[in-house]
Design a protein around this nucleic acid. Structure first.
Lengths: 129, 129
DNA sequence: CAGTATCCTAGCCGATACTG
DNA sequence: CAGTATCGGCTAGGATACTG
């Protein structure tokens, strides 16, 4: 055994779970991936993270800013101008999250096929009733 | 610009979101990381994925099985004996998810510090009321 | 041991309205 | 433009009880 490092250090693992709760939510990885393209304004983000509501974009950005993954720069002009970008730590996360997103893209068809097959089997089982 | 591949292919991105909804939930990445250690029985998983309820372990495993990421092997004995393991596709995801978990472990302290600092600044702002 | 089946609730998240 | 504030539906997910 001893397959990977994750198998040890249960205390660390418990701490890591807290972090996962933070970044493995519905939007964070997505926002980070988009910010990986470079600095963006609020409305740009809203447009590019498709499906996100204004509220959730605000909430997500605040969380990421609080965790030191995103920095927020306000220009005191009218109308307001606010820029978001990844911090250095944010960029280290970017590599990992992009890899995950890419994996998702690459395997979507395979997954869809697996689902169809699974649902088929389930239906056949039920048809024996 | 043209920072990364994720910046293109908005249609792909939209599809990838569906997948993210599936694996970026509270437990899936965690279960996959634990299964990365090797084949496990239901109760073993329940013990090692700390905090998961019986119900959520079942739900999560069914979802992963349906998506072709985990395979389930039942031995027709009494008491029941069921083994879970990663499929080949599951193992390709493992690398990515482990990288993410590891990142979380490595940056927990930095994040906690960022949070404390952020909350401090917020408190100071409010103290001007 | 490895599940189902119910019930129930905290809180996520979207919709809408308002502001500097 | 870039938010904040409020309300409410919905559902993820926990607790509990039961079974082959």
């Amino acid at each position: 055994m001893q397959a990977n490092r994750f198998s040890q250090a249960s205390a660390e693992r418990c701490r890591a779970r807290r972090l996962l709760d933070r970044i493995a939510d519905k939007w964070s990885l997505y926002v980070i991936a988009v910010l990986g393209q470079g600095t963006k304004r609020f409305t740009e983000l809203k447009r590019e993270v498709d499906g996100i509501s204004q509220r959730m974009l605000t909430v997500t950005l605040r969380g990421l800013e609080r965790d030191g993954l995103v920095s927020r720069r306000v220009y005191a002009v009218m109308p307001p101008h606010v820029e978001y970008s990844l911090t250095e730590m944010g960029r280290t996360l970017l590599d990992r999250s992009t890899a995950l997103l890419r994996w998702a893209e690459e395997h979507l068809d395979e997954i869809d096929a697996a689902r169809a097959s699974y649902d088929d089997r389930a239906k056949n089982v039920r048809s024996f009733d």
